[in-house]
Amino acid sequence: MSAAATTRTGGGSSLANRIVIYGLLLLFALVYLIPLFVMLVTSFKSMDEIQSGNMLALPQSPSFDAWARAWGETCVGLTCAGIKGYFWNSIKMVVPAVLISTILGSLNGYVLTKWRFRGHKLVFGLMLFACFIPFQAVLLPMATILGALGRFGADLESATGWNWGFGNPTVNLVIVHVIYGLGFTTLFFRNYYEAFPTELIRAAQVDGASFFQIFRRILLPNSAPIFVVTVIYQFTNIWNDFLFASAYAGSGDVMPMTVALNNVVNTSTGVVEYNVNMAAAIIAALPTLLVYVVAGRYFVRGLMAGAVKG
């Protein structure tokens, strides 16, 4: 079903119409691509060429120098060891946060659709609203709590020799992202399981399966698409987060990628190395771009699921 059926106008104007339509579409495609294109070509140029040449020109002698410098040498704040450490910081934070929030979301969605109780709607509504709050409204209390956890971790360390993860900025960010991602993951799974036939659950109940058996044997094997959607959505969101990262891990060698990139680019000391900046930016964007290229369909579905229908 497509609206295109109606736009077939008769006769000679049709060709002209098509040309205008394709022209506009290609023009916009160009506009959307230019920033990425400029980033790419700049990252392969030398600083001399950047200073003297045209922004849009292809590099005369493409070199990976800037990429190597961005990865291993460029200065983030006072440390000059490239962004690689921060890249791994992000990975170490994103993977557990995505997994935990997704699994909890699927369990929540399961309960909220198939094991309803009085007030399930209110519970869901409250969790859903949590998706939309400006995180500025929880930033300060969370900082206080994380500070307290840090002190507790320090005490623990002096007592036992290990802080057990308390006060570790990566652990902190995992906690924060799990908590503030729960609303989204619950929403995704709740909507997906809402459409999942309840008769299957009933049949399994009659067949003697328990709460977790039904979840593991009936629901999980049929949830692959929504898991992909949720994982991608959470991955993109958490990888791209800047606010929490800068508030709770905003300095030192614990910064996630986004904060480190911002520090590289907005540094006020030394010569600005645009090619290195661009390479660093592309490296920072690479994981999410890769996910987008590989699983674009699910990426879009996730965005829509987050937008349409509560």
């Binding site: 008769e199 299957l200 009933r202 049949a203 399994a204 009659v206 044997r217 009936i218 094997p221």
Partner: peptide
């Protein structure tokens, strides 16, 4: 035992 309207066969 129960036979459901939609048959409720486990698709997986």
């Amino acid at each position: 035992a129960m036979v459901f309207q939609s048959y409720a066969l486990y698709p997986n």
